[in-house]
């Protein structure tokens, strides 16, 4: 196992570009297949966007901590934030078959993250959200 890559983001949407650069750099350093790297990018983008856009009641600066690691053919991504409690596993799935005018504009991001990753675990502890996402590299 190589050293995990850690990253701290501020609760601003302008941080999404840096997030993408860091996740891509992790994928290249670990020689991850392109589809795996793309899945990590999308899932982290959606989760972090959700935290930044809907997680905070104040206008203050908050930090979102990320940790990416590769072990035994599986990438583990950990996200820690002090936003309001939010369990993405409990979010209702969007209706993907409704006609255009009945499609919901919400809930798509969490659906994308859950679909492209192989597993999600959530816990609320000490006033913080802890989300662990896993993605198998092969097999």
């Amino acid at each position: 196992m190589t050293a995990p890559r850690t990253l701290t983001l501020h609760n601003r949407l302008s941080e999404l570009e840096r997030l993408a650069q860091e996740v891509t750099a992790f994928g290249q350093a670990q020689r991850l297949p392109e589809p795996v790297s793309q899945a990590l990018n999308l899932a982290l983008d959606e989760i972090v966007t959700n935290i930044i856009s809907y997680g905070y009641d104040d206008q203050a600066d908050h930090q979102i901590s990320l940790r990416l690691s590769l072990q035994a053919g599986e990438v583990t991504v950990e996200v820690e934030d002090d936003a309001r409690p939010f369990n993405p596993l409990e979010a209702p799935p969007p209706d993907l078959t409704a006609p255009l005018e009945e499609r919901s504009e919400g809930g798509l991001g969490i659906h994308l993250a859950r679909t492209v990753m192989d597993g999600l675990e959530y816990r609320r502890q000490n006033g913080k959200n802890y989300l662990v996402m896993r993605k198998r590299v092969s097999g």
Partner: peptide
């Protein structure tokens, strides 16, 4: 690259 935010705008 497109995320759900981009999809939402199209919708």
């Amino acid at each position: 690259y497109i995320s759900s935010a981009g999809l939402r705008v199209l919708l």
